[in-house]
């Protein structure tokens, strides 16, 4: 599935959170959405998921508008993981996966839970309440929930935020391997530039609601004459009125 974002804007009262952004995310590619806090990344993702109604413009997923009647049909083939959104804490990991498996209409749910629990090393705490888990464990459970329906489009918002380097690396590697074995289009919002360099085919840089640059990581680094993506990021967010 591909994503086309056309002339997308969102205004909250007098604040323009997203200002006429346009991009295409090709099928089975990974796009990094970068920018400082408050630049409009979460609002953009919210509009792509159909959680926020755009003020103008449209989000087309496989050429179908997410805000039209197709929303549920599209959502059944999409998913989202973010450390800022939690699963019910008083339910066990298995119960949460079962509930979401049912909501996504997953066939042969028992086997799917078993499969994903093995892949993400959840078996030792499957019967533990989700609220009792460590950040790293919660993060993997959230990832498991986001993959329960084998989505064709996956939105990841800072998937390794607050994880130690070991678990962070485990998650990144898992995403890489999963992507290589499955037909999946990924949109990744992250502040970890090494993660973006490792996982993304192309990146978009956002600033004050606008897209200010785009390309492969190498393109951006070369264009801005920096040594790595982190320095490039800093140059872009600290410069004034730089537009693509």
């Amino acid at each position: 599935m591909d994503i086309k974002v056309k002339n997308l804007s969102k205004k909250f009262n007098n604040f323009l959170a997203v200002d006429n952004i346009n991009f295409t995310l090709e099928k089975n590619k990974t796009l990094g959405l970068l920018g400082s806090n408050g630049c409009g990344k979460t609002t953009s993702i919210g509009m792509m998921l159909g959680l926020i109604t755009p003020t103008s413009g449209e989000v087309l997923i496989n050429n179908k508008n997410i805000n039209n009647a197709n929303r549920n049909e599209l959502l059944s083939r999409m998913n989202f993981a973010s450390p800022y959104i939690e699963l019910p804490k008083k339910l066990t990991v298995r119960q949460n996966l079962e509930v979401y498996g049912r909501l996504y209409g997953v066939n042969d749910l028992k086997n799917r839970i078993s499969e994903i629990s093995t892949d993400l090393n959840l078996n030792n705490f499957l019967n533990k309440n989700t609220g009792e888990l460590s950040s790293g464990q919660k993060n993997r459970v959230s990832l498991a929930k986001s993959l329960i329906n084998k989505p064709n489009v996956l939105f990841l918002d800072e998937p390794t935020a607050s994880l130690d380097p070991d678990i962070g690396d485990f998650v990144r590697e898992y995403i890489e391997v999963y992507k290589s074995k499955n037909q999946i289009t990924i949109l990744l919002a992250s502040h970890n530039m090494r993660e973006v360099e490792r996982l993304c085919d192309t990146v978009i840089m956002m600033k004050e609601g606008q897209i200010v640059d785009r390309g492969t990581c190498k393109d951006l680094v070369d264009r801005h004459g920096r040594d790595n993506l982190e320095d490039t990021f800093l140059k872009i967010v600290r410069s004034e009125n730089e537009l693509a």
Binding site: L51, E73, L75, M78, L87, P88, K89
Partner: peptide, 18 residues
């Protein structure tokens, strides 16, 4: 309210449920 308190709201509303 349980959905709000558990911060599960967005998960619920991005699931394909009417």
């Amino acid at each position: 309210l349980e959905e709000i308190w558990s911060r599960n709201f967005s998960n619920l509303f991005i699931a394909p449920i009417k």
